[in-house]
Design a protein around this nucleic acid. Sequence first.
DNA 1: CAGTGGTCTAGACCACCGC
DNA 2: CGGTGGTCTAGACCACTGA
Lengths: 246, 246
Amino acid sequence: MPGTDIVLDGDGPLHQQIRRAIARPILAGAWAPGRRIPSEHELMARFGVSRMTVNRALASLAGEGLVERKRKSGTVVAAPSAERAVFEIWDISAEIARAGATHAMRLLLRETAEATQVEADRLRVPTGTPVLRLLLCHSAKGAPVQLEERLVSVRAAPAILDERFETIAPGRWLLDHVPWTEAEHSIRAAEASPEIAHHLRIGPGAACLVVERRTWRGDEPITFARLTSPAGAQVLIGRFRPAGER
Amino acid sequence: MPGTDIVLDGDGPLHQQIRRAIARPILAGAWAPGRRIPSEHELMARFGVSRMTVNRALASLAGEGLVERKRKSGTVVAAPSAERAVFEIWDISAEIARAGATHAMRLLLRETAEATQVEADRLRVPTGTPVLRLLLCHSAKGAPVQLEERLVSVRAAPAILDERFETIAPGRWLLDHVPWTEAEHSIRAAEASPEIAHHLRIGPGAACLVVERRTWRGDEPITFARLTSPAGAQVLIGRFRPAGER
DNA sequence: CAGTGGTCTAGACCACCGC
DNA sequence: CGGTGGTCTAGACCACTGA
């Protein structure tokens, strides 16, 4: 098969290398859902490893829902699930597009500064660290659906200073340019402050869903985002199985 | 070692049986965090399986964070994380207890009925299915923190008709008595209806976090719960890694 | 029927780390 | 040093299912 760009990076255990080699084109969108992945025998031969090692990598990808495996028919790229979108992607523009609505974005603030005490706490960096401050309002069908307050550590993503964010959202840009290894979400309800209410065109004190996300690359904080949506504009859905299963 | 009640249930692949056998006492709280789990060699001998099979079970438990493994020192029960509580347990009384507060529970409604159209939709059963309706208010330190509206399919859990719920919460009872294989959460913000506001002693229209949970055993719906908490009373936290890792 | 994945085995070498 | 887990191999048998 030409065009199969799966290569091992030589970093870490073989089964993790194989897993990454296959996960990479799937997550990047290069392999469309339904595309067939080489069989275990083919991968054995290609990488010169035993079948157990290949199986371990593929079984793990199947456990995460990135691929689906069926006897006889083989392994194929799985359709992205809403669950994965919730806990992995967090790209509001993609979510809006998936819902079939048109997405618009307004950049309300963009400035570099040294982190204040409060910002440093949020981003988990020392006070005075250079940061990029962003404030954006995302709309679907003309109605505001999410206010994005974001801090980005300039040290973790220096190239972000060249980006104007006229068409691409900061979350998307970061996903594309800065690999992350760890993320933390916190989810809560809150009443809209006057400023947030103004931007979202809702009454002050109206119920909002607030998601805060931090990401790291190793021990290095990358970004802090607070995403505020009016009640009803966003529902997070997750599917789970008992810890003893799977 | 006396008192190690790990037994295989003979259901499904060996590595899953071993995984369940170890996960069960951990999730039930019978094995305290830090407790040492038998080494791979001991488990090999006890169950008469190969080391690969034991390793597969333990590696999987480690991946979920139920145990921690260290070379030489062995495998121990991990401390429960807030993340696990959010996505697995959902036992409000345990969460309150962990936070060091006293938990109280008031049963406001308990009746059996045939599911109305709306209830049938929520529980994903046909209209007219026998259900148990429950309404409870959970308090911490005397202040209401969560209103629980719950439907239980009588067919899936007939023994629940004998339970009065004076000391044990329905969620806890179900976890203890009805094994589930699949759960779905949805999370959103909403404004308190007059009735909910009354029970939670907040103003009508105040912001609330609403979590809806459905569980199944195979294809059989077990329960639907809507858990409403005042803004600020509850924050859900999750930690994640990229889909290509781990 | 034949291709595919699901599982399991018996054994091996290695890295880590407490004693 | 020796116990522990981390990884990998080569091979085996089986279950499922599409052609």
